[in-house]
Amino acid sequence: MKNELDSKFLLQVFDKIRQHGAKENEQYKLNGITAFTDHDGYTLFIEDVNVKLQFGFHNQYHFDYDSKDKYESFEKKLKEIDKEY
């Protein structure tokens, strides 16, 4: 299954979650989405309870999810954050 989210969009949403989300330890939470980085900051993680996204160096990313419906719900949440903030 091909995912259509582009790197600029992902970075933009990650930044909005960090700016407007609640910080818990080293993670930021906003509208059901959690965003954080690895220890060196080169890999970003954006996830909800059903979908995990790992975005890394050279704009490579990997999604982990069980169904298309869960992915589409996750994508909708990201688009809502982008639009709302």
Rank of each mutant, 00 (worst) to 15 (best):
D40W: 10
H62L: 14
I17G: 06
F36T: 03
G21N: 06
Y85N: 11
E80S: 06
V49E: 12
G32K: 08
K2R: 13
E75G: 08
F63I: 11
G32E: 00
F9V: 08
Y65N: 07
V51N: 04
E80V: 07
D48R: 08
V51H: 07
L11A: 03
L44W: 10
D66M: 07
F74A: 00
V13H: 09
E72H: 10
S67F: 02
H58A: 14
A22L: 02
K79M: 07
F63M: 11
K79I: 06
K16T: 13
G32I: 03
K16N: 11
F14S: 04
I17M: 00
G32T: 03
L44Q: 06
E47N: 11
G41K: 15
K29L: 02
L10V: 15
E47G: 01
D82P: 06
D15P: 00
Y42C: 01
Y42D: 02
N25D: 14
F14K: 10
T43I: 13
F63R: 12
I46Y: 13
L78H: 04
F55L: 07
E24C: 04
K52F: 12
I33M: 06
L10Y: 10
Y42H: 04
S73Y: 14
K76L: 09
F55H: 10
K2T: 12
Q60R: 13
Y85L: 04
A22V: 07
Y65W: 12
V49A: 11
E80C: 00
T37N: 01
E47Y: 09
K29H: 04
D38W: 01
F14A: 03
K16R: 15
H39F: 01
D48V: 03
